[in-house]
Amino acid sequence: MAADGSMGAAASTGIGSGARSFFRTRRLSRRVQQTLIAYSLLSPAIIYFTVYFFYPIGLEFWASLFSGQPLIGESRFAGFDNYVTALQDARVRQSVFATLTYAIGVTAASIAIGLGLALLLNQRLPGRTAIRAVIFFPYIISFVIVALIWQAILDPYTGILNGVLANFGMPTQNWLNDSSAALPVIIAITVWKDVGYAMLIYLAALQSIPSDFYEAAAIDGAGPAQQFRYVTWPLLTPTTLFIAVVSMIGQLQEIAPAYLITNGGPADATRLFSLHVFEAAFFELNIGYASALSFLMFLLILGITFVQFRLLNRDVSY
């Protein structure tokens, strides 16, 4: 170990003799040396995040202050007009409501069904590995394929589901043409696709809970329901927080189901916010307005994530 503490830090982090002589000759204070070393080590990450995250976010905010086609064509400075327009637009409010319904619906259902499946498939069941694989499989399929599959199933005239209903003498349904049914249907399709992921995470978490806890609870007379309530569920809180945050962030930005299955219809019933932004940018060529909408969505996601952390973030140790 070097006599000089700062040199020791430099040596331990692999800084070469050139750097050591630099520090010696300049006689920088220990604090400055440590700061320089820290930033030099962080610089790849700083550059990466600056180029791929902070710069695009800044560019988007800049574009949101212009009307017209900033970035590609003619535009003029509009201040916060795009934000005011967005907040006054009834269609924006409608799409935010549809998006929140969709994201909360998918997240809640994925957590509930994923946890149920994980509890079930954590038991010693015959063929449980195959069943886990089958449930997880939709998660790795592209949503384009998922959309094609479900369009074929749900088509009111040529779909398999209505064919089955008709065979049993039951009334056929306009699954995707009914404004009140379309959003629940795409929530169900997304849950079908994503529930395998929640199940897998919960399975890993369940298997990490020491069996001693259950043995102790059993000795104290706790049945399966009480063991779940007082042992399993509290210890799964960090996992639930993780799934809830990741799922909400993902679903709030989701565009694929609305774009591919219903195109936002019928009558805007499934117009998710990302689809609204996408159409404003790429179909209406209203780039400034679309940028403002995106920035508002960024703030909304930030706020929702903060609330989730406040509600669910509890220290759990075992």
Binding site: Q151, D155, P156, Y157, N174, L176, N177, A182, Y259, L260, I261, T262, N263, G265, P266
Partner: peptide
């Protein structure tokens, strides 16, 4: 007449 199927597929 059929109710047109909501979506982006115009081949129905």
């Amino acid at each position: 007449a059929t109710t047109p199927v909501a979506g982006s597929d115009y081949e129905g």
